[in-house]
Structures are given as C-alpha cells and as structure tokens.
C-alpha cells in the first residue's frame, strides 16, 4: 500500500518534471520524485542508500540547481526541446530501458545476503576493511576535482585570445 502510494507520487512527479515548461517547477517536482525514490529504498531496507539519496540528490544537488537558475535568472517559460529528434530519441531510449527492466522485473528482488549488507553498519564495515584502498584513492578524485574548480573558475586569463 505504502509502496503503491510512493510509486504513484514518484511517477507523477517525474512526468510533471519532464512536461512542465518552467525550469523551477521541473526542479521542484524532481525533488519530490527523488524523495519518493528514497522512500522506496527505505521500504527495501536499504537505509544508507535512502539517506544518501535524500541528502545528496534532493538536498544538495537540486538546491544547487535551484540556486543556479535563480541567480542566473534562467527561468523563462519556453521549451528547451527545439528538435523533434530529441523527443523521438528520448522516447526510444526510455522505451528500451523500460523494456529491459520490465522483462526482468521478477528477478530484480535482492537476495537475503544482499539485503543484510545494505544496513549502515554493514556498509561502514565494508568501506573501512575490504574497500579501504579504494576509499582512500577516491579522495584523490575529489582532490583533483577541487583543484580543477579553482583552476577553471578562480584564475583570470593570462593572454586573452
């Protein structure tokens, strides 16, 4: 019952996100959609995934989008889809992905072992034992992204050409 309600909210807000003409409405309905997805994750007992999903996507990234659109004043109500081809491609791609998922829908239920490993405790344990080298190396990715932001945005052109 909860699952049906959540899925209805998620799908509805996703449809609104695609169809609405103003970017602000799109973003807000995308936030609703992401919260709905987070709720579905909670139902499958993957608490960590749900929390990260809500904090990172709905909390941080979408608010960043909102800020960018409001600061840059990008909120003009016109369709960004000017080509017919883009619409066709989008319909085709989502059709293919939907077919793949629906054709295998019965086999997507996680096994008990997987379900056990989705709790916060299990993930923390794995991250600092088995995955420790990967975890440490991933800091370098973030470091280089940080340097990159400073280099691209923070310095003025030396010789404008």
């Amino acid at each position: 019952m909860i699952f049906l309600g959540l899925s209805a909210i998620t799908i509805l807000s996703a449809v609104i996100m695609v169809l609405s003409r103003r970017p602000i409405y799109s973003i807000i309905s995308l936030i609703v959609c992401l919260y709905g997805l987070g709720g579905i994750y909670l139902l499958t007992q993957s608490q960590f995934l749900a929390i990260v999903h809500m904090i990172v996507y709905a909390g941080a990234i979408m608010v960043l989008f909102l800020f960018v659109i409001m600061l840059m004043n990008l909120d003009f109500p016109e369709s960004l889809i000017r080509h017919k081809g883009i619409r066709l491609g989008a319909i085709l791609t989502s059709g293919v992905i939907a077919t793949i998922i629906i054709s295998r829908i019965d086999r997507f239920a996680p096994s008990d072992a997987v379900r056990q490993s989705l709790t916060v405790k299990a993930i923390g344990k794995l991250m600092f034992t088995q995955y420790i080298a990967v975890f440490e190396l991933s800091t370098i990715v973030f470091l280089s992204a940080t340097i990159g932001v400073i280099l691209v945005a923070g310095s003025r052109p030396v010789t404008p050409r």
């Binding site: 340097i147 990159g148 280099l151 691209v152 310095s155 003025r156 052109p157 404008p160 050409r161």
Partner: peptide, 10 residues
C-alpha cells in the same frame, strides 16, 4: 583532463 583542456581560458 577536463580541467587541463580549459587552461588557456580562450
């Protein structure tokens, strides 16, 4: 690479 590609700022 994404960063280094932008480094002449042109």
């Amino acid at each position: 690479m994404y960063v280094l590609a932008a480094q002449t700022h042109s």
